[in-house]
Design a protein around this nucleic acid. Structure first.
Lengths: 192, 192
DNA sequence: GTAGTTTTGTATCGATCATTACAAAACAAT
DNA sequence: ATTGTTTTGTAATGATCGATACAAAACTAC
C-alpha cells in the first residue's frame, strides 16, 4: 500500500533520547538528531512532530523506564534497607560507569528547562510525585516489618532519599572518587 | 584620552551571570546578553571576549561568591550543627524564594556542560574540592568540640553534605512543599 | 581647536538554526 | 502495468546564531 519505513519508531526515539541526554535540549540541533537517528528531517517531523515534541516523548520514555526499574527493585523480596542500598549503589555505579558522564536525563532536563517550560515542569513534578510515592511505600514496608522505626516521618524520609538520589546523579558527573562516594552511601543509609 | 565607557564591567558581568543562570549556556544568545546588559555586541566582545569566555567569567564569579558566603557562615562562632542547619536552610529558602526558580548556577552548568566542556569540568572539579574541604574542616571542628562523634569518617560526611546541598538545589526547582523539605533537613542533620 | 585614543552604533558577515516544498522512490492492490 | 499511498532524498525557506568591519562619537592631552 505504501513505501515501507526504513527505521523503527521506538528505536529512533531511543536514539533521540541518547542525543538529548548527552547534549541537552538547546544544545541539540535537528542535524544532531537526524545524524544519530539514521533518519532525515522530513521523516523526523512526520514521525515525531517537531523538536520539542520529540524531546518530550524522549523524556517520558526515560521517566517510564526509570520508574519501571525502581518499582521492580522495590518489589523484590529483600530487606528494605538492602533495597535502598541497591538503589543508591545502582544509581552511583551506573552514573560513574557511563563513559559520556551524562548524569541523569531527568535532572539535566529539570535544571535546564523546568523554569522556562511549563510542559517540562509538569512532567518533572509528576516524576517527583511518583518517585516520592514509590519511596514512601517502600519506607512504610520497612516500618511494618520493623526495619525502620515507626515514629519516623515517612514523607520526610522519602524526600530525603529523593534529594540524595538527585545529588548522587549530579556529583557523579564530576567526582569519580568512588571510595568517598561509597562511604557517603553509608551515611545516607544511617539516616533511614 | 578616550571615549568613556557607558557601563561598568563588574555590573555587566553580574547581569550576564543572571541571564546565563536563567537560560543556560546554549539557551542564551548574544542578543539575550546585550539586551540585558545594556551593551552592544562589539563592546561585549571587546570587554569580555567571546560568549564562552564571558560564561566562564560569570561562572567563576558565582563560584567565588558562593564560597565566600560559605566560608563566612562556617567561620561564625556557633555550634557546628547550627551552622550546618543554617547552610541547608539558607540554600533551601533562597532557592524556593527565587521567583524565576533558577536553582543553582553551578549545578545547572555541571548538568548542562561538564560532560562536553573541559574547562567547565575543571571549574566544577575545583568547586567540588573547595566545598568539600570547607565542609571537612567544619566537620573536624565539630569533632574537636565533641558535637560530632570522632569516629565518623570526615570525607564521607563532607561528601554526604555536598550531595545533599546539590539535591536540595535540584528538588527546590520543582517541589515547593516546604513542609516536607524542611522535615527532610532534619533527616539530613540526623545523619551528621 | 586639533590630534590621538577608545567606545559606541549600525550594519553586516557566513554559518547554522528549525522547518518544510517538492518530487523521485518504493511498496500494495488491482 | 497502472494506480494510489506513504516514505524518502534533496534542496531550500526565512530566521537567528556568534562574531566583526567600519565609521561616527566622545572624551583627554596638547
Amino acid at each position: 500500500m505504501a513505501r515501507p519505513k526504513k527505521f523503527d519508531d521506538a528505536a529512533g526515539l531511543q536514539k533521540a533520547l541518547n542525543v538529548f541526554w548527552k547534549k541537552g535540549y538547546a544544545g541539540t540541533s535537528i542535524s544532531d538528531l537526524t545524524a544519530n537517528m539514521d533518519i532525515n528531517a522530513p521523516s523526523l517531523y512526520a514521525t515525531y512532530g517537531d523538536k520539542h515534541k520529540l524531546f518530550v516523548s524522549a523524556l517520558q520514555a526515560y521517566m517510564q523506564s526509570q520508574h519501571a526499574w525502581m518499582r521492580e527493585s522495590v518489589a523484590e523480596n529483600k530487606p528494605v534497607k538492602e533495597i535502598i542500598r541497591f538503589l543508591l549503589e545502582s544509581l552511583l555505579d551506573d552514573t560513574l560507569a557511563d563513559p559520556e558522564r551524562r548524569g541523569c536525563f531527568m535532572v539535566n532536563t529539570v535544571t535546564e528547562m523546568a523554569n522556562q517550560d511549563e510542559q517540562v515542569f509538569a512532567i518533572a513534578s509528576n516524576n517527583e510525585n511518583q518517585v516520592h510515592s514509590i519511596l514512601a511505600e517502600l519506607i512504610r514496608k520497612g516500618q511494618s516489618s520493623g526495619e525502620i522505626s515507626a515514629d519516623k516521618d515517612v514523607d520526610a524520609l522519602a524526600s530525603f532519599l529523593f534529594i540524595n538520589f538527585m545529588g548522587i546523579r549530579v556529583i557523579a558527573a564530576t567526582n569519580s572518587d568512588k571510595k568517598h562516594l561509597n562511604k557517603a552511601l553509608d551515611v545516607i543509609l544511617s539516616a533511614v
